[in-house]
Design a protein around this nucleic acid. Structure first.
Length: 435
RNA sequence: UCCGGGCUGGGGUAGUGGUAUCCUUUGGGCUUGUGGUGCCCAAGACGUGGGUUCAAUUCCCGCGCCCGGACCCA
């Protein structure tokens, strides 16, 4: 026996079916908005990550030298890759660029709740527009995806914030503030105790009283956002507040406004965010971390050597999304789906195969015996794969030119002339042939 | 990388310093024309390496994996 690699998982058919259903729901929601599926490599140059986040990041990656002497890394996230792709074809791609992708990523981290070394994410991004409608559309795809999964506003909430409001406010203090460090501190606000939080703010450059004042500002309710503009008195904050208000207003028409709550303490650790940022939380708090997050990153493409290109996106990970769905009781049932089982009695293999083929042509999942099993054993198997209808192709019935249809749920059966089956029916059931 | 807890057939469990209970499962049979109930047969486990011991699944240590947490969260 071989052990599985730590942090990597196997998915057996029942669970896989549910996962695929959930993934398909999210992806098709995005496709419905015109996000186009893309495919991306599992390996990238390691320096793509090192340049962006520093050499230390390589310790948290599956990074190695390949046989050609290239320093490569298994992709820990998609954003740098799509940024690279956008830059490479900048001229030919019509804007806005709207892409969606679902695939695994790898990070060399310690597994814990909602976190694995191999994990799956759907990335949904828009490039080439800074219009608040784009931010709102991203929130809309996120909200629609969750509601298509059966979740409601009772189950989750989007904590929406704005990087530039935070940055602008910090800039307004008469102090030499390390904005990045201060935003990191904000990001930790809920996790560390109050003293530690203030210490972090102070080490970022704020004085004791400034830190208190800043923290106070973060509690500003949505209705009083304009107070922040007045406080800072800068164009930057005024523009940021106006932008956030415009985004929130736009979510109204997308029908996802109800999910959004202003939460200036939501910062996201990520350095590249520039404007709107948001995180999705389980409203009961049972899922200990953010289910997923997203936001605007207007400078990244330029940083990758492209034309200035605004961008906004989000990326649900299925580890946490599954936890949320399970908690909310909307995780798809983990049972196999089989439309038909064609049961053979005696030497009826060829007729059974024809019946099975005709049903498959109608798009169904159809199984038949491939083990030479007995009648009872075949029925038992049909039950074990959760077959809805069993078509019994037996020598006795065939003598009369008939097959027997059996509804596995009710146990009802009926005889059908083989010539009429499946006939014009797209999904023939016992009910279609009962007289 | 660090901290805490765990590891007995595929899954769930009982138990013990002298090799293991029960349930379920899987395969076959009773039964190649009616299953999901029953009966019979069979398969299948002490994560791994080392130490202590006459003897280790049991006690000790390392490692692996799992669960949770810290760090990090791109």
């Amino acid at each position: 026996m071989y052990d599985r690699i730590k942090g990597f998982r196997d998915f057996y058919p029942r669970e896989m079916q549910s996962r695929q259903q959930v993934i398909e729901t999210v992806e098709s929601t995005a496709r419905g908005y015109g996000f186009r599926p893309i495919g991306t490599p599992a390996l990238e140059q390691a320096k793509m990550y090192a340049d962006k986040s520093g050499e230390e990041i390589l310790d948290e990656l599956y990074a190695f030298e390949d046989r050609g002497g290239r320093e490569v890394a298994l992709t820990p996230e998609l954003t740098p890759t799509v940024a690279r792709m956008v830059v490479a074809r900048q001229q030919e791609l019509s804007k806005p660029i709207k892409w969606v992708s679902t695939r695994p990523f790898w990070r060399y981290e310690e597994p814990q709740q909602g976190r694995f070394r191999e994990f799956y994410q759907t990335n949904v991004d828009i490039f080439g527009t800074s219009d608040p409608a784009a931010d709102a559309e991203i929130l809309a795809v996120a909200g629609d995806a969750l509601s298509n999964l059966g979740l409601t506003g009772e189950d989750f909430e989007f904590h929406v914030s704005h990087r530039d409001i935070l940055g602008g406010l910090l800039e307004g203090f008469d102090a030499d503030v390390d904005t990045t460090a201060a935003i990191r501190a904000v990001d930790k606000r809920a996790k560390v105790d109050r003293d530690e939080y203030f210490e972090l703010l102070e080490s970022a450059g704020l004085s004791d009283s400034q830190a208190a004042e800043f923290d106070d500002l973060l509690g500003t309710p949505e209705a009083d956002l304009d107070d922040l503009v007045a406080f800072a008195g800068t164009d930057r904050v005024a523009a940021a507040v106006a932008n956030l208000q415009a985004v929130l207003a736009a979510t109204e028409s997308f029908g996802v406004r109800e999910y959004c709550t202003l939460s200036l303490t939501t910062a996201r650790g990520l350095d590249y965010y520039t404007g709107t940022v948001f995180e999705c939380f389980d409203s009961t708090g049972e899922v200990s971390r953010a289910v997923f997050g997203g936001g605007r990153y207007d400078d990244l493409i330029e940083g990758f050597g492209g034309q200035p290109t605004p961008a906004v996106g989000f990326a649900p990970g299925y580890a946490t999304l599954s936890l949320l769905c399970q908690r909310a009781g909307v995780w798809p049932e983990e049972t196999l789906q089989t439309d038909y089982y064609v049961l053979q009695v005696g030497d009826t293999q060829s007729v059974a195969a024809t019946v099975a083929r005709e049903l498959r042509e109608r798009g169904h999942v159809v199984e038949s015996d491939v083990s030479g099993r007995s009648f009872g054993a075949q029925l038992e198997y049909a039950d074990s794969i959760n077959a809805e209808t069993v078509v019994i192709v037996g020598e006795r019935d065939l003598e009369n030119g008939e097959v027997t249809l059996r509804d596995m749920e009710s146990g009802e059966q009926t005889q059908v002339a083989i010539d009429e089956f499946p006939g014009a029916n797209t999904r023939p059931t016992v009910a279609n042939f009962e007289n």
